[in-house]
Design a protein around this nucleic acid. Structure first.
Lengths: 147, 147
DNA sequence: TCATAATGACAACTATATTGTCAATTAAGA
DNA sequence: TCTTAATTGACAATATAGTTGTCATTATGA
């Protein structure tokens, strides 16, 4: 294995992330959505109604901070609280129609850009890349956890 | 092109980066090196002597902040200033023997871990992944810059 | 030489969190 | 049922990783 290729791959993650985030932020300008609200809505969109602690687990950030993000989405009317049959105090967070519309629109626009970018790639190239990145990430986490 | 594969690939960049950074940080524990000092030393190691503004360009962060990072490496004796033939005020930053030793050791240790991780991959898989990630990043930046 | 730009130093500010603490509530076991 | 341990939401304090603005001091280049 050419280790330096792997090294480069790993450290490309930062520029990639920054470029992607800049894109998202740019696309959100003019919307009532902020990047962090978007993160909450995206999780709800992908996984359905969830509690704040569950969203925090998905996003891998502290629940206290997710609480702030969630409160913003509530204040903006993108989400609403629904009674949680499994827990009386921790409500389920649910997308409102408005929230669904706004996140769908945002993601659709992002997907449009992605289609443009993806045009230059073969399916299997991207599939391989995804697979490698996922496995590398898993193994990096593993090594860290072991010690 | 399966756009959702590309979508996933892009957003794997965050977990990948976090896992990698956690690894680096962990590896640096017990050393006199901090993560941000490491970044400076790594650039110097890879590109030879540079000025503060040049390092900033490489790292894509503000020169004023790089100045702080660099000052730490100077204070710790990992780097030293050398006269810059091309510019009298902006000294070239150079690794000291101590700095070279410490960054070499750190990177060697990281490479060791990488070799372990890389063992499970074929050369061409990683090469493809790197290529895809680099091209995607470039195109993301391009789209952003166009508007 | 002289206008223009770059540099280093430093202070103020911002964004994005993390950490600690608390009271209220809930879940789980004896 | 009691009661103990854990979870939750709220909020304040702190931390981290920078950015931005400003200034005096050089350098550079026409």
């Amino acid at each position: 294995m050419k280790t330096d290729q792997l090294y480069k791959l790993i450290w490309m993650s930062r520029p990639l992330m920054q470029a992607a985030e800049a894109r998202v932020e740019h696309g959100l300008a003019g919307t009532d959505l902020t990047v962090r609200m978007r993160a909450v809505l995206e999780v709800l969109r992908a996984h359905g109604d969830m509690t704040v602690p569950d969203i925090a687990t998905k996003l891998e950030i502290q629940r206290q901070y997710v609480q702030l993000m969630v409160n913003e989405t509530l204040a903006s009317g993108f989400t609403e609280q629904r009674p949680n049959p499994r827990h009386k105090r921790s409500a389920l967070l649910s997308l409102t129609d408005k929230g669904t519309a706004v996140i769908d629109t945002a993601i659709a626009r992002e997907m449009e850009i992605l289609r443009g970018i993806g045009a230059g790639f073969a399916d299997d190239e991207v599939a391989t890349a995804l697979q490698v990145v996922e496995r590398v990430t898993a193994r990096l986490k593993q090594v860290g956890a072991a010690e």
